[in-house]
Computed example of a mutant assay.
Amino acid sequence: MARISALLLSLLTGQACAHTFIWGVFVNGVDQGTFKGVRIPAYNGQNGKGGYNNSPVKDLDSIDMRCNVMGDIQAHDTIKVQPGDNLTFDWHHEIRNDTDDVIANSHHGPSLIYISPDPPTENSFVKLWHSGKYESNPFPQAGKWSTTSDIAKHFGHMNVRVPEGLKAGHYIIRAEMVGLHEGDVSYVQNPKRGAQFYPDCVQILVEGDGEVELPEGVSFPGAYSYEDPGVVHNVRPRLSKL
């Protein structure tokens, strides 16, 4: 297993075309190990020249919107947590260290985190956290967005707490970053553009004697629509004609 993990790591760190995904998880500040519990997006060929992880996903009706490409395949291990624990997802682009750019500096957009029982069912994903544009700057600047001005500037760290009193059992955390740099039109209007979604799932086992069950949530695919203003959005709007 160690040899397989080392080989996987060497392949991933050599991908100059890789997009952003979760490389590790900290529980209350303790690193659980590279890729432990993470459903790593599938490696895809790109015109026979190298490849990438996470295409990204742009088709809102695709099953890849749930946990990315081949994301319904179980990871080899699961992270044990307690209700109330703080989870830090360590996002990276090409290599897991603080020199990595995490996500391209043009990929402005929101970040979101959902939780679902594992395996998920209809409307089982419940949102735990989200952050979008939190500061406007004068035209033509895009302003400050969660992906580029928060997560990337904090070395790829995205934080969330396991709900207090959550009932013990197997869950998946669906964390996501969204790039709106080509989101001025929808994917169905122009498949070469459209919002870029970077979902990734982490397997957790909640322990303890909690009794709180998750409420009804949303489904992936299905939670987002091309009519949603947050899906089709121009991060650098042009001045209106006089």
Rank of each mutant, 00 (worst) to 15 (best):
V81C: 01
I73Y: 08
H107V: 07
E122S: 11
D100E: 04
S111K: 03
N47G: 11
G132V: 03
N47D: 15
Y114N: 01
L112R: 13
P119V: 11
L128I: 11
N86W: 03
P120N: 06
G84W: 08
T88G: 10
Y52Q: 10
G48I: 07
S136C: 03
K133Q: 10
F89H: 03
P119S: 11
P120L: 12
G109F: 08
T99A: 14
G51W: 06
N53Q: 14
N47M: 07
P56V: 04
K80D: 13
I95K: 11
G51E: 12
G132M: 04
H76W: 00
A75N: 00
D64R: 01
C67E: 15
D64T: 03
R66A: 13
H108G: 00
T121W: 01
K127A: 13
A104W: 09
P56M: 09
S124P: 02
G71M: 07
K80A: 14
Q82G: 01
I115H: 04
G109H: 06
G109E: 10
D118R: 09
I79P: 00
V57G: 02
P83A: 13
M70N: 15
D85I: 06
P56G: 12
D64E: 12
N105W: 12
H107L: 10
I73F: 13
S116T: 15
L112V: 07
K127G: 12
D100I: 08
K80V: 14
K133G: 04
M65K: 02
W91Q: 01
L87G: 02
G132W: 06
N86L: 15
S131H: 10
V81P: 00
S131F: 06
R96M: 13
V69P: 00
D77L: 12
S62E: 02
R96A: 05
M70K: 14
N97S: 10
T121S: 15
L112P: 00
R96H: 03
D72Y: 06
H92G: 01
F125E: 00
Q82R: 12
I115G: 02
I95R: 14
T78N: 06
P119I: 09
L128G: 07
I63Y: 06
D59Q: 14
P119Y: 02
G48L: 08
T121C: 05
D101W: 01
K49W: 03
D72I: 01
N97D: 15
H107T: 05
L60A: 06
W91E: 03
N86M: 14
S136L: 14
D90W: 15
I73E: 12
D100H: 04
N54Q: 09
E94P: 00
M70V: 04
I63P: 00
P56A: 11
S136N: 14
S62Y: 09
L112A: 05
K127R: 15
I79V: 05
H107D: 06
D100C: 09
N97R: 04
K49E: 11
A75Y: 02
Y52L: 11
D98W: 07
W129R: 13
P110V: 15
I103S: 02
N68A: 15
D64A: 12
T88K: 01
I79E: 02
S131C: 13
D85F: 03
S136D: 15
S62M: 04
Q46D: 08
I63G: 07
C67F: 11
K127D: 07
F125H: 09
W129K: 11
K80H: 14
D77K: 10
N123C: 07
